[in-house]
Design a binder for these strands. Sequence first.
DNA 1: AGCTTGACTTTGA
DNA 2: GTCAAAGCCAAGC
Length: 111
Amino acid sequence: MEKDFFQAVFDLARLIPQGRVTSYGAIAKALGTPKSARMVGYAMNASHQISDIPAHRVVNRNGLLTGKHHFNYPKEMEEKLLKEGILVQDDQILDFEKVFWDPSTELTNFF
DNA sequence: AGCTTGACTTTGA
DNA sequence: GTCAAAGCCAAGC
């Protein structure tokens, strides 16, 4: 199976449980290419045209909603996160450590 | 084939 | 603790 990096990111992104978030680097690491963290975000950019990808559950390593600007409207990301029970304030996830979901840890046998 | 861009991460000062 | 710079891989042109 020669699915693109994007596909892999999308698949994993869909596995993110509700009320949890993860970082681009974590996804990249889970995919086996920790250095391609930027690609994860790049892939998410395309996720809009692909299907229902919970891109709002993916933030940078600081728990900051860096990608909010790429949504239909910036507030959308924040609203969705809040709706899922994730505390967000000023584009920053408050309890980031609590809601952080590491696919590499939770889905070790994902491959 | 090469160059540019990017929703990041890590390291050094 | 903060701020700045380099590195990184993949897609698009």
